[in-house]
Nucleic acid binder design. Structure first.
Length: 469
RNA sequence: GUCCCCUUCGUCUAGAGGCCUAGGACACAUCCCUUUCACGGAUGCGACACGGGUUCGACUCCCGUAGGGGACGCCA
C-alpha cells in the first residue's frame, strides 16, 4: 500500500510554525516511503476562505522547500459529496434529523456543565422524537454515536487511547443550511483522497474518536493516526503572537535559512539518537513515526540560532550575498556590483561570525555604506586626539604602499604600533576601526580594508578625520 | 468543571529492567586563541516531579498525588 499523507491547513492568513512542522512531518513521511502528500484547504466554513490566506500558506511551503502532489483541493468545493454521505447515513438509519433550537441546545449545554459532563446533547430526536417536526424549522443531521462501551484509538505516537462511549455525543455532521461540518468533511475527504496516514496536531486526538464513528458507519478503513504533541512558547504556554513570532514568514524575515528551519523543526519533537544536525537528505532516509516524542516541547531561539549558524557556514556564498542584499534593499541601501563583490570576497569570514542573516547584514553593513556615515558612541570615544593622531599616521603612510593587500596593511599597522604605541596593536587598530566602520567592532580590519580598496579607505579616513568628534 | 494526553539537566532530547557514577546538543561559567566583536577549541555546572508497589534489581513496568498541556460549537 502506498503511503498517502495530507497537509490540511485552515486558511487563517499565515502559516503557524506548528502547522509548518506538521507539514514537514507529513512531507518527510510521504517522501521517505515513496508516497504522496496531498494539500487540502480546510475551508468548510467559507466565510474564512480567502485567496490571500491560501497564497500565504503556499509561500510558506515554498520557502521551506516542501512540495506536494496534485492540485490544492478546496474542501468547500466538495460540499455536495459531503451532503450525499450525510444523506446516505440518514437512509441507513445511522444518522437522524434533529430539530433542536439554539435555545434548547444552550439550555442543555448549561445543564451539562452543571452536572460536569463533557457531552450535552440529550439525543431527544434520536429514536423516539418527542413530537412531530416543528413547522418551518430546518433540521441538522446528527450521527448516532454508540451509547455504551468503550472506544479506542490506536495512535502511533500516543499508543492506545481509550474513552468511554458516554463521553461522545451525537454530533452534527450536516448543518441546517445543508453544509457539512468539519468532522464529516475531513473523514469523507480523507477517505476519497485515499489518505492512509493522518499525521496532525495533538489537539485533534479527541476528535479522532468522533471521526472514527463516521468511518465505521460508512464501513471505511480507518487510517493510521499519529498525533504530534504541540509546540509551546519558551514560557511553556501555547505558542502565540505575544511570543513574538508564530508564522514562518516572520522567521524568514528574522534571517533564518529554510534548511535550518527544517532541521530545527524536525528535532523539535522528533529524534534519531543523539543526532542534532540532520540535513534534509538524511532526514528523508531516517524519518519515522517511532521517533516522535510524546510530550509538548518549547520553542528555543538559542538552539534555532545555533542550527542556523551551522547552515549559514555551509551555505553558498553568492546565495548569501543575494539574501543579504535583499535585507539591505529593505534598509534602503542601494547595492551596487562593487558592493556585491566586496561582500562576496569577505563572505567566508562574514558567514562564520553570525547566527542569522540579519546579524550578518549588520556585521557587514560598513562594507556597503557610503560617506557620510554615523559613528556610534564607542567609535567616537576611539576618535579622540590620540586616536585621530594614529588615524592620520596610517592615512599618510597608506599612499606609500605598493600593494594594497591585507598582508601589507597588517605590516604597516604593526610597524605603526611599534613606533608610536609601544607595540600595542590594539591602540592602532581600534581608532582605525572606528574611523572606517563607525563602530568599535567589525570583522578583520585589514581584510576589510583590502576589500574596500585604497580609494575608499582614503576617503573614509579623511571623512573621519574631518568629522567633528 | 468533565474527559484525554504528557512529565529525564534552564531548554531540546538519548534511554525499550541490570550497559546509568544517567549520554548528547543548546544555553551558562572559566580558560585558550585574538587588533575589536564574534567564530572556533578545551574544561566545568547541571536532570530521572513526588509517594507507593512489582522485581534479586527500576529512569525504564503498575497505581496514586502534584504539575503542565489539550479537547469539550450548526469553528476548523
Amino acid at each position: 500500500m502506498t503511503v498517502v499523507t495530507r497537509f490540511p491547513p485552515s486558511p487563517t492568513g499565515f502559516m503557524h510554525i506548528g502547522t509548518a512542522r506538521t507539514g514537514l512531518f507529513n512531507w518527510l513521511y510521504a517522501r521517505r516511503h515513496g508516497g504522496k502528500m496531498l494539500f487540502r484547504i480546510e475551508d468548510t466554513d467559507r466565510a474564512r476562505h480567502s485567496e490571500e490566506a491560501v497564497t500565504a500558506i503556499v509561500n510558506g511551503l515554498n520557502w521551506l522547500g516542501i512540495d506536494w502532489d496534485g492540485d490544492i483541493v478546496s474542501q468547500f468545493a466538495m460540499a455536495d459529496r459531503h451532503a450525499e454521505i450525510a444523506l446516505e447515513l440518514l437512509k441507513s438509519g445511522k444518522a437522524y434529523y434533529c430539530y433542536c433550537s439554539p435555545e434548547e441546545l444552550e439550555q442543555m449545554r448549561e445543564d451539562a456543565k452543571k452536572e460536569g459532563r463533557i457531552t450535552f446533547y440529550d439525543r431527544r430526536w434520536r429514536d423516539n422524537p418527542p413530537s412531530a417536526p416543528p413547522e418551518g424549522v430546518k433540521p441538522v443531521i446528527r450521527i448516532k454515536a454508540p451509547m455504551s462501551g468503550e472506544r479506542v484509538v490506536y495512535d502511533k505516537v500516543q499508543g492506545e487511547v481509550r474513552v468511554a462511549s458516554e463521553q461522545l455525543d451525537d454530533f452534527i455532521i450536516l448543518r441546517a443550511d445543508g453544509t457539512p461540518t468539519y468532522m464529516l468533511a475531513v473523514v469523507v475527504d480523507d477517505h476519497d483522497m485515499g489518505v492512509t496516514h493522518v499525521i496532525r496536531g495533538d489537539d485533534h486526538l479527541n476528535n479522532t474518536f468522533r471521526q472514527n464513528i463516521i468511518y465505521e458507519a460508512m464501513g471505511w478503513d480507518i487510517p493510521t493516526y499519529a498525533h504530534l504533541p504541540l509546540i509551546l512558547g519558551p514560557d511553556g504556554v501555547k505558542l502565540s503572537k505575544r511570543h513574538g513570532a508564530t508564522s514562518v514568514e516572520e522567521y524568514r524575515d528574522m534571517g533564518y535559512l529554510p534548511e535550518a528551519m527544517r532541521n530545527y523543526l524536525l528535532r523539535l519533537g522528533w529524534s534519531h539518537g543523539d543526532d542534532e544536525i540532520i540535513e534534509t537528505d538524511q532526514a528523508l532516509q531516517w524519518f519515522d513515526l517511532e521517533g516522535i516524542g510524546q510530550s509538548a516541547s518549547r520553542f528555543d531561539f538559542d538552539k534555532l540560532n545555533y542550527v542556523n549558524a551551522h547552515y549559514m557556514k555551509l551555505a553558498d556564498n553568492s546565495r548569501l550575498v543575494d539574501l543579504v542584499s535583499d535585507i539591505y534593499q529593505l534598509r534602503n541601501i542601494n547595492i551596487t556590483p562593487l558592493h556585491r563583490e566586496r561582500l562576496l570576497v569577505r563572505m567566508d569570514e562574514l558567514k562564520s561570525r553570525s547566527k542569522t542573516l540579519v546579524q550578518l547584514a549588520d556585521d557587514a553593513e560598513f562594507l556597503v555604506k557610503s560617506i557620510p556615515y554615523d559613528f556610534d558612541e564607542k567609535a567616537l570615544a576611539q576618535l579622540n586626539e590620540d586616536g585621530k593622531f594614529i588615524v592620520r599616521v596610517i592615512r599618510d603612510n597608506l599612499s606609500g604602499l605598493d600593494d594594497f593587500t591585507a598582508e601589507e596593511l597588517e605590516t604597516l599597522c604593526k610597524s605603526t604600533a611599534d613606533y608610536h604605541r609601544d607595540g600595542k596593536l590594539g591602540k592602532v587598530m581600534m581608532p582605525l576601526r572606528a574611523a572606517l566602520t563607525g563602530s568599535a567592532s567589525s570583522p578583520s580590519l585589514v581584510h576589510a580594508m583590502e576589500a574596500l580598496g585604497k580609494e575608499d579607505v582614503l576617503l573614509r579616513l579623511d571623512f573621519a578625520l574631518s568629522h567633528n568628534t
